[in-house]
Nucleic acid binder design. Structure first.
Lengths: 199, 199
DNA sequence: TTCCATTATTGCCCTCAGTGCCAATATGGT
DNA sequence: ACCATATTGGCACTGAGGGCAATAATGGAA
């Protein structure tokens, strides 16, 4: 039986072996034992293949945000939810790293990701808007959505480059780096350094 | 004589008339009186046509950052330079809005933009790294680069939706929104609203 | 002015992603 | 076994983009 999981697995193998750009949709289809045309019924585009359970995860992110207690500040609620969104089962860490490495190091996928990220940002923006009695289209919620994504991506990028780091730790570090940057309004102490690696 | 400016002008006209996706590279080439193959010598891809002087602007951004006095905080230096980068001559505002509307409302271009934005982020990150004696690849500078871009894009998005707003004003508002978000760590006052429109 | 060496322009052909359309095939219920 | 329905697959087409080689400018040097 043909499943998304099967196609994805085969595709990842080919991407690893040959690179994303050098792998044709036809090769994936052949390896999966289905027709090219059928593969396009499973995935709207080649770029969509490596995204796994992203849409489902988005729903969990929205849910997690809604379950945050009201006495936590919006900033903390967002930060905690972003960390929860990016929590991965220890057994799945290697596969997750593989996925993210592909997504973040392949220009075509990096570009395509922006479209997926739009939905992610919208989830954050909706929550922030709700908490402040605003529209999700207002400047403030949109800004926070974009910034939260920026922080998450910065953490991911670092995580992919250094096998030793922990993702939750890096996420905290990006939030801390931002605080540090903004708090540093007056005197600038050039000898200041980033805090140590998380966990 | 064929120039980038001419091709761009013709392309924009066709994009306005027919939409970006419905306009083929061949149509642009024909209208510009050059061969399809030649157009691809002027622009590496159709997606690159609407970007105008972006690369040159990047150099100006880097220069502006380097010219910031050392007694201004990094945060302010970045904020001011981002504003300077996005300053447009009043006479060119309409064309700029046209360009940005196309870039930000067309999915294909929205995706492609990420690749251009990578260079933008790198300029910011390099500056932040320099000021703090870090590597441009460190977490902190990269984070600030990503956040600065997030703020700029949030401002642009709003600017495109409301003809009345001023871009510098919106940029300040996004920076303010972020401050507000992060300062609001303890009590949350749901009746709080965004500050008034800039200028 | 003429010739030569670049450099720019173009044509041709190829690959590959993605889509529309319709035929064939499986599948589940009766 | 039979039919209605959903899935799969085949075919042909468009459009972006690249490799390559032929053909035009073009800007000096003689």
């Amino acid at each position: 039986m043909t499943t998304h999981a099967l196609i994805e697995e085969i595709a990842f193998r080919l991407f690893d072996e040959q690179g994303f750009d050098n792998t044709t949709v036809e090769q994936i289809a052949d390896a999966a034992g289905i027709a090219r045309r059928t593969l396009f019924r499973y995935y709207p585009s080649k770029n969509d293949i490596p995204w796994g359970q992203f849409d489902e995860s988005l729903r969990l992110l929205a849910q997690h945000l809604r379950e945050m207690p009201a006495d936590v500040s919006t900033a903390v609620a967002v930060q905690e939810s972003v960390k929860a969104f990016n929590h991965v089962d220890p057994a799945a860490v290697e596969q997750h790293r593989r996925r993210m490495r592909l997504l973040m190091n392949t220009p075509a996928l990096q570009a395509h990701a922006t479209l997926r990220h739009g939905a992610w940002r919208a989830v954050i923006a909706s929550y922030v808007a709700e908490r402040h009695g605003m529209s999700p289209d207002d400047l403030h919620p949109r800004t926070i959505g974009r910034v939260a994504l920026a922080l998450a991506l910065a953490a991911y990028q670092q995580w992919l480059e250094d096998e030793q780091t922990s993702l939750p730790g890096l996420l905290d570090e990006t939030f801390a780096a931002l605080h540090h940057h903004l708090d540093d309004q007056r005197a600038v102490t050039p000898e200041r350094r980033a805090v140590g690696k998380g966990q």
